[in-house]
Nucleic acid binder design. Structure first.
Lengths: 341, 341
DNA sequence: ATAAAAACTTGTCGCGCGTAAATAAATAAT
DNA sequence: ATTATTTATTTACGCGCGACAAGTTTTTAT
């Protein structure tokens, strides 16, 4: 990092002894120039601290190497984990990821897509709000920008979806719970913010019927992303009213389960599968904190790695123009047995 | 949104009947043009869907209206909450915030600052890794870009710091715990990733001495941001060895406390302040999930709103060139009494 | 050694906007 | 109405790069 300050690519080309167009070619794809040329440029890069002006670069280019990652709620550790994983993959592939959170609000989601549009991104990875999304806005956006929807499959919008096989989740855990004790009741939000909830309810019903049991669904009042709070408040009410037909409760997701466990604690119910326990509780997602609830939460683990891998893979296919028909990828979850059920 | 597609500002100026330089002026600051002119532009904006090319805009401008927000670990809900709040304030002030997470890794933090530099941001809000940060890199960055450090005060780097008054946190809760029961032992990580931990230890020691008790510090082995895991594993060990001198444990932060509560549960210890409880546990931060632990966690609440407000305020002062000497703002926390202590 | 292909050079244009200076018009003050 | 002041217009240039064409050199294949 010695040498005079380099102002632009012209000057940098001069000091590295290479012509500017070739240097430009290098920055767009280092592999596209001869090894010996690459060597000389990278040598110069070490002594003269130069970086192309990102704004000038993107002004003319069609492909900006930007990738937008949008999640509905970043304070939800499930999305934080997905976002982290996707971000890393973008960086590894040589792209510039930018992270956005809709914070559960439709107008924010719309604003993000709007602002994303002017960034001319190569592609966008979008976990939409779901029920609260403005479908027309998303549809219009998908038509303009190569977009892979992940986690929440909004009315089959866009050219690709990657997410969990939610019916399988519920099916799997219903099977486990029935085989190891009483059949579960299903505890969910009446108006869940995330569309996966509906698939899980269907999976629960199908699973119960397959096992020859009658499904029982308890719905919690309350709106929004304060899910633990709803699980606690409404779970407490349900317990108070003796609403659950059996001693086993399957929650629609781990955050609801975390709230429900609090409710059990406050009502002095011992949760677990031991003889001394009076109720079994299970969740779905394998939320990063599920391991640390009291007792540790039995759940179905989302395959975060596969979701992120498949999401990126589909995006690259879209970018490269392959396979223009709509695809939907559903990844299976694995049972994580812990103490709560 | 009818009318032909508008390609650039030239065309938009034509259809709105205003000259291009004036339109340019409008987009840089709508208030800078006469009300009647503004009216005409905004009218045209409604019928013709035009937005200035963001790359061409930023190419020449010195002030890009970009603000970078960097946190050490976005999957930590405490930082997710801070980031959310800061992001909103930036948007409200008419800036374009961009969110980055270092994921606890020094090289990532350095890469982020590097990439941030080429975005020519108006300012940066940086919660540094702390112990794992490359101080020279951060110092150099602060010299080039107006930067406000928040949450973690790294060796008095940069021109401004805003964060919690960590000694006061520990002091306050030590006082509370001593007045309501046995004096607390202090449970912390031996090598905490966040520098606030040291301040809290000092606050604990000072608080204990003020009350006339002898401090006792238990340090957990383990590195990194898997804090709950460490709290669980090392807390379990410490309980097994009877390491705590009293029945009261103050954890350095809520995430450690969440892990420690799990350890208590696994050892069948009833946590709380009731007569039937055998141990009291407290944390510090008011982590978003503290309300939902079993039992709910007594803690000291960070004043997230004030931190975010003060952080932004200091940034604007720096941008506007006021007060070039270094300032440090320390905000007090409030006691949140719940069932665990 | 020769031909063909690949990589590089030189030169030139244009992208969409910021910005500045000189001029003209609109508003405000007298 | 006249002058002073603010605001808009016209004209012109430059930013740093991508993209392209035509010519030159280097590498690879025959």
């Amino acid at each position: 990092m010695v040498g005079a300050k380099i102002k632009n690519m012209e000057e940098f080309a001069a000091v590295s002894g290479i012509s500017r167009p070739t240097v430009s070619k290098y920055f767009n794809d280092p592999e596209s120039v001869r090894a010996s040329t690459r060597e000389r440029i990278e040598q110069a890069l070490k002594t003269y601290d130069y970086r192309p002006n990102i704004y000038a670069m993107n002004q003319n280019r069609k492909l900006t190497k930007n990738i937008g990652i949008v999640v509905p709620y970043l304070a939800d550790p499930v999305f934080a984990e997905l976002a982290r994983s996707l971000e890393q993959r973008c960086l590894d592939a040589g792209y510039r990821p930018t992270l956005y959170s809709s914070h559960g609000v439709q107008s924010h989601e719309n604003d993000i897509l709007d602002s994303l549009r002017s960034l001319k991104p190569t592609g966008v990875l979008l976990a939409a709000l779901g029920r609260a999304s403005d479908k027309r806005v998303i549809e219009k956006f998908c038509a303009d920008v190569p977009t892979v929807l992940f986690d929440s499959n909004v009315e089959d919008l866009g050219l690709a979806f990657v997410g969990s096989d939610n019916p399988q989740f519920s099916n799997l855990i219903v099977d486990y719970l029935c085989r190891t004790g009483e059949p579960p009741s299903f505890f969910e939000m009446k108006s869940p913010p995330n569309p996966n909830a509906n698939k899980r309810r269907m999976g629960y019903i199908a699973g119960m019927e397959k096992m020859g049991f009658t499904p029982q669904i308890i719905q919690a009042e309350g709106e929004g992303w304060g899910i633990e709070e709803i699980g606690l408040r409404e779970g407490y009410k349900a317990l108070e009213q003796g609403a659950f037909a059996t001693n086993t409760v399957l929650c629609s997701n781990d955050r609801l389960a975390i709230g429900f466990l609090s409710a059990c604690y406050e009502r002095n119910l011992r949760v677990g599968r031991g003889a001394d326990a009076s109720i079994r509780v299970a969740g779905q997602d394998d939320h990063p904190f599920s391991r640390f609830t009291c007792p540790a939460l039995t759940t179905i683990a989302q395959d975060y790695e596969s979701i992120s891998r498949e999401t990126m893979q589909r995006l690259f296919q879209l970018i490269e123009g392959e396979s223009q028909e709509r695809t939907a990828t559903f990844l299976e979850g694995k049972l994580v047995m812990r103490e709560s059920a």
